[in-house]
């Protein structure tokens, strides 16, 4: 009873029932807690991950659905030593308060910038609509994503 896939570049086997959610596999046996539980109903975006480069809600996705595929979580985007441009911009602009929503938002931003390398502000807002932030860091987050887009375009 395990599902094999590539997690942040490494081959893993998640010892969990195939019908369990990817979020349960990540936060449970795989021990990566950066992907957040917020609602369990695809309504807040806190659990967003990339599956083969496409954004997916890990809270409702059965782990069996990622069998043999590539999964990227916030931990796979960058580190303090080698941050992703989105992460660097978030920190430069102090674009967060409690920070709980930021894992999913970073994943969304990375997916957006892959599709639309130089988005307009309105495109960033629209792309982030599936994500909730309660602290009111929205405008800083938008500015950070636009800054990251600029940096990545250089």
């Amino acid at each position: 009873m395990s599902t094999s896939f590539h997690l942040n570049g490494a081959a893993v086997a998640a010892p969990i029932e195939p019908e369990a959610s990817l979020l349960a596999a990540l936060r449970g046996p795989l021990g990566l807690s950066g992907t957040r539980f917020g609602c369990g109903a695809e309504q807040c975006g806190a659990c967003l991950v990339l599956v083969d480069d496409l954004p997916q809600f890990a809270c409702t996705l059965p782990v069996s659905a990622v069998d043999g595929r590539r999964v990227t979580t916030v931990e796979g985007l960058g580190t303090a030593e080698a941050p992703h441009p989105v992460q660097r911009a978030l920190l430069e602009l102090q674009a967060g308060q409690c920070g709980f929503c930021l894992s999913g938002i970073q994943i969304r931003a990375v997916a957006l910038l892959r599709e639309v390398p130089r988005p307009s502000e309105d495109q960033v807002r629209a792309a982030l609509d599936p994500h909730l932030c309660r602290c009111g860091s929205h405008n800083r987050i938008i500015r950070a994503i636009l800054r990251a887009a600029e940096e990545m375009a250089l």
């Binding site: 950066g34 957040r36 931990e75 960058g78 303090a80 941050p83 920190l91 102090q94 967060g96 709980f100």
Partner: peptide, 23 residues
């Protein structure tokens, strides 16, 4: 002065810091 938040990097990089992450 506008010093950067001490707690924000771990939250941005998804490192365990929230109570929900405690195991």
């Amino acid at each position: 002065t506008s010093t950067a938040r001490l707690d924000l990097p771990e939250k941005v990089f998804g490192q365990p810091r929230f109570i929900q992450d405690l195991r």
